[in-house]
Design a protein around this nucleic acid. Structure first.
Lengths: 209, 209
DNA sequence: TTTTATTGATTGAACGTTCAATAAAAAAAT
DNA sequence: ATTTTTTTATTGAACGTTCAATCAATAAAA
């Protein structure tokens, strides 16, 4: 049923179908035919709109990363306060959106993560995203503590977020998003408390670690 | 040059070659021919010793997991004390051995991790390992705090370990093992301090989170 | 009638597996 | 010691399958 202006519709259909196919059988068995069948179109159309399978995979990863970035940005924009703690919590919550919205996205994300180690273009996209998370966290921590401490806090919280999310994606029972978010928030709490204890003049004990 | 008793030698060669091939081009492009070339043998021998490519991949994952388990067990066995804290530190150190010894192993591990989502046999192996880490951590924390707190601490520390390790594997500059281990140890410190502050009678402040 | 969108059979390359042939070592026979 | 036989390990060409990409044919809309 050829109509004009199909391009954006087909592109979205195919990206959605790619995520569905990867969720179903994994990246290795997500053939162009299977993806096309999911979208209800023929295999040839993929090369027509994305130049080939690689183009479609890249576009899919790009959209997942973009969705994640927007989820974080939206929550931060909705904040009425400027407090570092509120922004850090918004970043945490935004990062757990990606799996909350759709389970299949988590599998796709991990598949791309592994694949990015040997595909330069995917590695580039993944790196940009990694740096953004780290930079956002670091910037907020920097308002509360000296640079080196802030860097370590950002590295550790980023690792905690990724680790919780990764374990959730692999768990047979599926992601327990609420618990993951709670644990991440509790860790943030610990980071802030640990700093409050160490730095201010009202320190109740001298705790050298 | 056929000699008797080649089996264990060839099996080890092929497993090592598999890790090398995955490190080089990724799991998707690690063909039997490439693996065989790495080991200096012909492609056919893989089916002979492992029944097929899948058998070789499974054996490779099994060895990586087994090496990790032994690294942890060895460090714990070497402890002179029975203190929970010492065991927890040994578990952390043991888990960072896997990437310390060989960088390629990290890539292989992650590749299997992603692949295990759709290959039941790999999923089984990965699950056994996950549970072991969690159970080990949980058992030690249980000696210091109530059950629910211990479970959360174990979940969080496991996530932190995996997250640090994952980020290290993906970083272009390669894993900074020392820093990762330091961050994990500092987190453990925070977990223990947070509990010491909340529980004992000498609590300096009432910190309800 | 022209343009745009889509199909699906075809093509060529690449893959894992198989198996008859081979070669080296070990064992047996001379 | 030398030769023959048996066993074991290994090869690599052939086979069948699967895949992504191509493109002439087609069909709906403009």
């Amino acid at each position: 049923m050829p109509k004009v202006g199909m391009e954006p519709i087909r592109r979205q259909q195919l990206i959605t179908a790619t995520v569905a196919a990867i969720d179903e059988v994994g990246l290795a068995d997500a053939t162009v035919m299977r993806i096309a069948r999911h979208a209800g179109v023929s295999a040839g159309i993929i090369s027509h709109y994305f130049g080939g399978k690689d183009g479609l995979l890249e576009a899919t990863m790009r959209q997942i990363l973009s969705d994640l970035g927007e989820a974080v940005a939206a929550r931060r924009a909705a904040l009425s306060t400027d407090a570092p703690r509120a922004h850090l919590e918004a970043i945490i919550d935004g990062n757990f959106d990606r799996s909350q919205v759709t389970g299949p996205v988590a599998k796709t994300w991990l598949a791309f993560w592994a694949s990015s180690m040997h595909k330069p273009e995917l590695a580039r996209l993944q790196n940009v995203n990694d740096r953004r998370l780290y930079a956002n966290l670091c910037h907020q921590f920097r308002r509360l503590m000296p640079r080196e401490q802030a860097r370590d806090a950002a590295r550790a919280l980023a690792a905690m977020i990724d680790g919780l999310w990764l374990r959730g994606a692999l768990t047979p029972e599926g992601q327990d998003t609420d618990r993951a978010r709670r644990l991440a928030r509790e860790y943030l709490e610990q980071l802030l408390v640990a700093h409050d204890l160490a730095a201010p003049q009202t320190a109740p004990l001298s705790l050298e670690s």
